[in-house]
Design a protein around this nucleic acid. Sequence first.
DNA 1: TGGTATTTGTCCGTATGTATC
DNA 2: GGATACATACGGACAAATACC
Lengths: 239, 239
Amino acid sequence: MSGIKYEKIYEDLKMKIEQNVYHYQQFLPSENTLVKKYGCSRNTLRRAIGNLVDDGYVQTKQGKGVRVIYQDFGKNEYMFGETETFKEFAIRNHKKHRTEVIVFEELVVDQNLHEHTRFPMGVEVYHLKRVRYLEGNPVIMDYNYFRKDIAKGLTLEIAEDSIYEFLDRELDQRAVTAKRKMVVERTNEMDDKYLNLDGFNSVVVVTSHVFNANGVMFEYTISRHTPSNFVFFDQTQRK
Amino acid sequence: MSGIKYEKIYEDLKMKIEQNVYHYQQFLPSENTLVKKYGCSRNTLRRAIGNLVDDGYVQTKQGKGVRVIYQDFGKNEYMFGETETFKEFAIRNHKKHRTEVIVFEELVVDQNLHEHTRFPMGVEVYHLKRVRYLEGNPVIMDYNYFRKDIAKGLTLEIAEDSIYEFLDRELDQRAVTAKRKMVVERTNEMDDKYLNLDGFNSVVVVTSHVFNANGVMFEYTISRHTPSNFVFFDQTQRK
DNA sequence: TGGTATTTGTCCGTATGTATC
DNA sequence: GGATACATACGGACAAATACC
């Protein structure tokens, strides 16, 4: 019976909210009550509640209590965003998926590449261009740059499956921090050639810088999504 | 000399990181060192650092330390996202801004409106259609629904300036939690009529449900952005 | 290889402040 | 004013990962 206490409390409360034990607009029992119920300290309980706040499940108000603001908005069938990978996304939504590798090469970072990737000059990288298919439809063009010293042994076959599973399984690397920027751009020749744009003359361009647990930026990726398959969710607090 | 201690430590560290006192890839001094420096408890310091992690400034690793991963990516001139309002955004970027109100009316929530806004049936709401201009260019079409009992006294003149300033100043209401969904859609007749689409045949549609500090969902808004003026940033951690 | 010190992660108990009712 | 509830802050204990000798 190990595991992190605040995580368990968080999961239990979240489950109870999703299952309407605590319903929309209702107050949770007070901190002191929950402290007794879970047999934990107030700090630990507050940590669990803090995570629920971050996830948009509850709102706290001093002197009043902790109110549930979670509403079930349906399936969230499409959900790019978070740190989910393409394969995880496809499987979660029971979609057939496939990845076609167009380019697989090794490069050395020069001045030009340095400026838009932020990789140090002279570093060796794998460069890939990939087309991602969902239910037979080409929906994403990926341009990936991985540091060779970190993604050592990457092959074309791996790139057709899941690079992240490989990094995680073989090299004990995993993405820890991702910084992303999203814009919408007019399509280019490659988009027109490879993607099923469904009448759109634009794509959603997600640019990511990804850091591993050692603080090394090891991935720079540009993903060009067909608009019809792109959805992003987010929640923010401000006080 | 009041103010919240962990916020001050957070601000101080953030400032030092932005000004390269602690530079990219460098470790911060250890928690114990910083505890002595700031004259605070370890919990308080850790809270400040936790917020820096959430903001993508640093990464922590047990047994090693706290590493700076902040890089100055330039101006971030455009930055929809966060909870910033249109007016705040315009002022921060030194852009001339103007809002034109196309429709200002009062409605009662019926079955149809209930289903996509999630407002309770029978509630009275203000309904607005507004066009937002930046440097003379129409860049956003806003469709707002505000609960009348909460945004009491809203007028067309206020809607031309800033509804949020009004809510904050006059009614002590302010947005606390916003849940948003972003998609890209083909333009409709209104977009074509009012927006300067610059060759795009799509708009970025941001749908928001906004809760005030009392946990009441008081605003439902659909914002249709011209693609050329839309940028969204985000950072995520995963362990 | 192994042991020790360092560093962050988890958890506890307590005290005090502040907002709400 | 008093009771209740969340917010901030302190200090201490032990665990787990890492670094160093």
